[in-house]
Design a protein around this nucleic acid. Structure first.
Lengths: 217, 217, 217, 217
DNA sequence: CATGAATGAGATTTCATTCAT
DNA sequence: CATGAATGAAATCTCATTCAT
């Protein structure tokens, strides 16, 4: 554990600055200074600045996918809607507990780089598969309306990422504090409302049971 | 209004690179090279690189707000829902016709800088005022459900920005082409569905009339 | 002429240091300091440190080949031996008047790099062609003995380069001053002796006339 | 004499890289990686990188001089010319069997450093003494022409080192393979030709006997 | 209005070396 | 005897900016 003390300090400092100033807006020296270690450690542990970037993004998506996968594996025991809502809840919680990393990764995803292209063809393709499958099953079971799945995914992902990409906007313009305890719970309910109103079949009976899902933050 | 050729070339090149590589990831030399002009022109026309940034972002929001305002001014002649949908449509069209600039500005908004803070307290505060007022009127008129307005705005803005922040994701992961003609129309319908299902009062009679709003792209 | 003052100063300083400390043993800062210009000028004029290397080496060989070529073109007017001796003389003079550059280039040629490989397939292949042709004609005309040309070239080039690769050795070990006026003349005579004794046919009559070639240093 | 495995591996790796990339162009990490040992071993065994350099160069010259000395000691039993040719042969063989080290050392000798100056005042001064003495005796015995000894040494050393400094040039430009079996033998004959034609007195009777020296490679 | 030359500051990376284990 | 972690120094390179023309 002590062996990687330095590495951990670098990661924390990097996430901090990448979050606020962006990857290109942050110098390795700043990171090293904040981490109170020598600059050369960045090369030592991550080869170079870009290696640090890759490490952080990959790391983020490893955890992200694990969260989705573990809910996806319960699809046989649960209804599609239940499953979808649990995925939504878990993603919100994952993003909440990694909010600096999340903002930075989501921002980085908007660039046209080789790395991002690779991320898309691996992690994001998998994510799409899981979501698509959940929606397909839900539609087959008549839980969900027959909708264009890609467009549903766009809306869902838009909603899931918005508060974590723009926390400053929420706080300073809308006066909603995305870092405070109850925000996630409240926002989860909003997405649930959207699922119920815009995705689920109105007369679906399973709605009731799903309402019982509570956020344990 | 009649910009010199050089200034215009710089702007185009800057938007191109800022869109794909980000502001900090782009050097003024790259911009000058692509624009086929001398680097010193950037200082000449925009004082410095940051001036170019400010110019582009302000420019974006000037146009953006004008679009919202002109619909907002029709609030007396139209129902809140009609107005909201027209605003949605116009924003989509504005973003579509400035897609490179839009992606870059939306990305830049995720940073914590002085400039962005200023943008928030000016342009985005205004935008919030317009949206809030539309929703308030709609609720008062019983067109809209009584909902937490900030949360509605979060969802709306999440949906509005998603395809323009992540065109690559739409194209390569979801195989939806956000730059093709019919996308905006289709996506507009999705947001309309959301307004009808999750925002509007279900028994609202005006729903019918609103369906008539057609996108003239 | 004033435009390239800086470039020229960089070149001079680079040649000076590359000569004594080698390319990898010299830092761009040292060069810039000696040249009394800003380090960035090296990137500005030569792209990077390696560009400076390429420039200097190419430059050397452009001049080197021009010297050989102009004598080679006189092959119709002169005997092969005369021509060979004039080439020898001119190479010695060229190396003498570029002694720092010469030592550095000859040393660099001993490395296994891409650049050197390219130099070999271009400049040195040409040089070999000229020398080979001179020897072939000389043999055909019975001026020269029938010898293995590559081996003659090895010996010739070994002799031509030795004093310019190892001036320090000549000075400090052999107490021969390769930079002093009369050295070139004396050394030229040695090579002429080698040509007469080891290359030329002993009964060749042209030997006499060739002796008249005097070095005008 | 029995080096630790690690030390030997370091030496081999160092010679390999110094040969192809030069001393300054090689990092201790590269050496350690190739040798499959830890970097710190280099400091441990050679104090520092420069210590490794000194070790290798000294080592080379110890062996080099031993080769010359053992022939020199036979001067009483043999003619000067015989002796000279045996020295030539042995140097060629020594360089051949240490070709990587040889190229690197010969290249390093072209630099102006303290270490090289020391090498010159020790090893190379000795070498000069041996060669000079052989030539002087030969001249006294009328085996050799009365020539300027330093100039003879320059030529001899130029010929001896050329193929080992520029193996790439021989291979790729002249298509002579200095590493193949028969090269040394053939090249030795060339130098012998030079000795006979340009150094020896033409009517010298000992020439015959010397022809019997055969290379046992 | 536009340019090429030049610069100073700083960013990233490399490197030899050290030290505790 | 050997290692992995860590460092300080320096090397290369990049960048925004300035200035004379």
């Amino acid at each position: 554990m002590l062996k990687t003390e330095t590495k951990k300090k670098v990661i924390d400092a990097a996430v901090y600055y990448f979050n606020t100033k962006g990857f290109d807006g942050t110098s390795v020296r700043e990171i090293a200074n904040k981490a109170n270690v020598n600059v050369a450690n960045i090369s030592y542990y991550f080869e170079n600045k870009n290696g640090l970037l890759e490490y952080l993004i990959s790391n983020f998506f490893e955890g992200y996918l694990k969260v989705i996968e573990s809910r996806f594996d319960e699809l046989d025991k649960r209804s599609a809607k239940e499953c979808l809502l649990l995925v939504v809840k878990d993603i919100l919680l994952y993003q909440k507990s990694n909010r600096h990393l999340t903002r930075f990764v989501l921002r980085e995803l908007t660039l046209d780089t080789l790395l991002i292209r690779e991320i898309m063809t691996t992690y994001l393709a998998k994510e799409r598969y899981y979501l698509k499958t959940i929606f397909e099953i839900g539609m087959k079971q008549k839980e969900f309306k027959k909708l264009a799945i890609p467009f549903i995914i766009i809306q869902l992902k838009g909603m899931l990422s918005m508060p974590y990409l723009h926390p400053q906007y929420l706080a300073e313009v809308l006066h909603v504090m995305p870092n405070e305890e109850y925000f996630t719970e409240q926002y989860y309910k909003e997405i649930e409302r959207w699922v119920n109103a815009a995705v689920s079949e109105p007369f679906e009976k399973t709605v009731k049971t799903n309402n019982q899902i509570a956020l344990s933050i």
